[in-house]
Amino acid sequence: MSAHSHPGVLPPHPESATLEGRNKLMGFWLFLGGESVLFGCLFATFLGLRGHSDDLLAKNPAEFFDLTTVAWSTVILLVSSLTSVLAILGMHKRNTKQIYLWFTVTVLLGLSFLGLEIMEFSNYTNHDSFHFTQTAYASSFYTLVGFHGAHVLFGTLWISLLLLQLTRKGLTVVTAPKLYVAALYWHFVDLVWVFIFTVVYLMGKVA
């Protein structure tokens, strides 16, 4: 807090140096709690419906889930989570170049994850004729995994816009909390994916 007396010099933890920044952080954690509830309910729906579709069209996902693609998606998202924390380390060192570099890598990895997911979904619908409206199970699969994909898309857009803002306003006690919570969001998206690859793909492959 003492750094406030030196205008132009960022305090050691610029994200929590102001009351607004601290409130933003706490509010964002509460939002992540709400996001957990959202994804928890989607997981619950998915698990409840799995193996309970009487429909003759019900497909056994073990036949077409491609674990190689899922493994690549997992590695991509995991590395992107690391790069976003490296960006925050750069922010703590007041190294704007590092923020640009690592967040840009994060966004690019997020986009490649989305590319893989789009390829995967189009394979399922075109090649395996596993459609959103086919069975309740299919709906719950696409809703859960697709909702996660939508979060990745939103994250890439959000981080890109923040980088744009950083070029205009520089690293200040106003922009730092935004970058910090965007990184938190990105970690959370990666954390949800850990459960998706375990519960949806790995467990789906065996059941």
């Binding site: 706490m26 509460l30 992540l32 709690g33 509830v37 928890g40 997981f43 619950a44």
Partner: peptide
């Protein structure tokens, strides 16, 4: 430091999510 409220927020969310999963799996 200073992560008590965040921990409470995320723990509450996680608890509700966990309950939803267990309940559905158990009942269905």
């Amino acid at each position: 430091k200073g992560h008590l409220f965040p921990a409470m927020g995320i723990a509450l969310g996680g608890f509700i999510a966990f309950t939803a999963v267990i309940a559905t799996v158990y009942w269905l």
